[in-house]
Write a protein that binds this DNA or RNA. Sequence first.
DNA 1: TTTT
DNA 2: TTTT
Lengths: 162, 162, 162, 162
Amino acid sequence: MARGINKVILVGNLGNDPETRYTQGGMAITRISLATTSVRKDKDGNQQERTEWHRVVFFGKLGEIAGEYLRKGSSVYVEGSIRYDKYTGQDGQEKYSTDIIADEMQMLGGREGGGGGAGGDRPARAPRQDYGNQGGGQRRPAPAPASQPAPIDDFADDDIPF
Amino acid sequence: MARGINKVILVGNLGNDPETRYTQGGMAITRISLATTSVRKDKDGNQQERTEWHRVVFFGKLGEIAGEYLRKGSSVYVEGSIRYDKYTGQDGQEKYSTDIIADEMQMLGGREGGGGGAGGDRPARAPRQDYGNQGGGQRRPAPAPASQPAPIDDFADDDIPF
Amino acid sequence: MARGINKVILVGNLGNDPETRYTQGGMAITRISLATTSVRKDKDGNQQERTEWHRVVFFGKLGEIAGEYLRKGSSVYVEGSIRYDKYTGQDGQEKYSTDIIADEMQMLGGREGGGGGAGGDRPARAPRQDYGNQGGGQRRPAPAPASQPAPIDDFADDDIPF
Amino acid sequence: MARGINKVILVGNLGNDPETRYTQGGMAITRISLATTSVRKDKDGNQQERTEWHRVVFFGKLGEIAGEYLRKGSSVYVEGSIRYDKYTGQDGQEKYSTDIIADEMQMLGGREGGGGGAGGDRPARAPRQDYGNQGGGQRRPAPAPASQPAPIDDFADDDIPF
DNA sequence: TTTT
DNA sequence: TTTT
């Protein structure tokens, strides 16, 4: 049973174009690097800036949309959860990584694609180039990486008895 | 297309048992009244409490779960969005209501049901009694809110020009 | 003692210019009307849009900043809490209102002021007209937006190529 | 200027008692390990659980409160931001760490201290044992576990004893 | 690496 | 009333 809440809300800008891969099953996995910058006063009263670079991962349909519409510089709202991983590097050392697993995304504009018709090496809405080894198109829609059910299906379906 | 984010996160306690209704289509709709209490210092430096009573609505499967497991006094985490409605009351007057439409819920323990097996007039896990799919539409007024404002420093310091 | 969490996160656009008032003590109180639009499919499978108009209130220094930099059409991130009020209208009727009391705000760009030098009845960076007794403050505005939806899909379905 | 939003909301349980240190300036720094568990169905339709262990850090007054009132097993709501750090380990290797910097905290009850006066190896409200090099008595006993805003005042003020 |  |  789910115990606890693990929720992240980010608004930031992409440091690079997204990278999309596909699983053998055809599911898109898109990664972005998202910057958020905060300020605080240090002990001398000077404004200090600090930027965090979040590794955000989008799966499935969200991964396709993220890969297709986000670009370096894009401003985006992301909601998701934190996932910590531990793995053994090629040097035999234990490594740790932290990812934000997105389950909601909304573009906010900003640098919006870096090439609205002019100069872009890739049209903003072109299907994403993909590097994957996917066998085909069986991208079936399915459950979510994290989170809870969300009804509201037949919301307006009848009269509502209140 | 979705434009914007409308997100609410509440942790609070139920003021009463949930009320569950069903649409003619059989969808559960459960309502609870959820209290959150905040404190701030007033201008005289005294601690001032203020309780907000949120009307939270759960639809579908979440409505069934909420109706089944929540009870007066239960502590619960709710995530959802705000919905404002306007309707004409039986007195012909225009009325406004605000509801929190839940899309995630998690019980947190606490008063947990008001009767751990003993003495409750209804076992904590019994299927909820339901009032059926009747057509009546009488919107009740929300539970009475308390008093006192919320935010920044000298808020209550003078008259408020609105 | 504080009991519970009452948190709201909004990203939306202003339907009108902000309105700023000042208390006799000189505290700014700024109100905005903020739209968030969501979509869902109705039972016939059609996309249904619904816009909520949030009344957001900023106090103190945040009220000054909001009043100075936000304009009709501005895109903004707001974090705060919900406050329900009950009052007696001039018609003697009991009325209810719901406000979002902001405690954090960040401009996201967008229509950014409705008058970039051209045609605005008030320059975007002019100190706000104020009805109260005190002066303004100098602060700079911020960045720009659009939008996109956000579904969800499969997860661990196969090997993950990262 | 701040650009972006970096917000984390956690509800979980402590895996161990908190650890509190003090800077030379006397600022409390408390660390906890907080578990959140989520479930999802894997591709075979089985319920899969996964627990994330968050390293949460509280500074200043919040650090004192957290150190004083939280215990192994405590259930707690935490709001804060993600901070990624990179450092060189004693083995000369570059290491990465991720912390949640808390700026709001609220106890939720649950295991609440593991010993209401009886049997605990340390009374729940005893002043925390501290390992630090702080100068003395400015550790005032904090008020009740209220949700409070964030200090982070003299955040960088000295060496940080972790 | 973004952004302002 | 905003926005796309």
